[in-house]
Amino acid sequence: MENAMSTQTPASKQAGDLERWASIIGGGAMVLTGLQRRSLKGILTAIAGGGLVYQGTQGKSTLKQVEDAAGLDHAIRVEKTVTINRPAADLYAFWRDLTNLPTFMRHLQSVQVIDDRTSHWVANAPLGQAIEWDAVIVNDEPNHLIAWTSTDDAPIENSGFVRFRPSAGDRGTEVKVVMEYQPPGGMLGTAIAKLFGEEPEQQIGDELHRFKQLMEAGEIATIEGQPKGG
């Protein structure tokens, strides 16, 4: 412990950093640009833990934190924002009931809520397969923020948050999703990359767009099942 302490930044600096990250997450600028080479998972768990920035809530050493950051080379990181013409409270409430997510997230089969923090996710994988993992909510600020991360035994490490913020004018609520996932190597990694689409940016964008349609228009626009000439 003695040793670890010596490589850490003073507590006041940590608090300052925390504040800065919290304001980046809550603010109007690009989050991923702000985070740069910090792992999103590290930041989210740190903010939730209220100060254990460099060790993380799971007691990772400084060295491990650096390794996490190095691994970011392979990480897929996405940030997307959409404005929805509804109060933040409505949007938060719909999202916070995680079982609603598969209605607008096409790649999900189901989300099962285990307890207030823990949930079990099943996603469609190629060739009729499914992949499953557990996730924990690491931060839950009603009407403002939901942050989650997968548990350590998840086949794909993924973390993210959705943030609701009143928009300028009377346009409703800015909904921002930031996600990071680490595909494992090998066959499984390739399969998972497919799961999140060739263009994860576009997939998350599409999901947010469907969320918006559902919240504003009461249905998701579709042409599936309409007639077509031969």
Partner: peptide, 14 residues
């Protein structure tokens, strides 16, 4: 061309 196609169906509630 004028094709014969299936009739349209209700797909969404509205």
């Amino acid at each position: 061309r004028v094709d014969t196609v299936p009739d349209p169906k209700i797909l969404n509630p509205h």
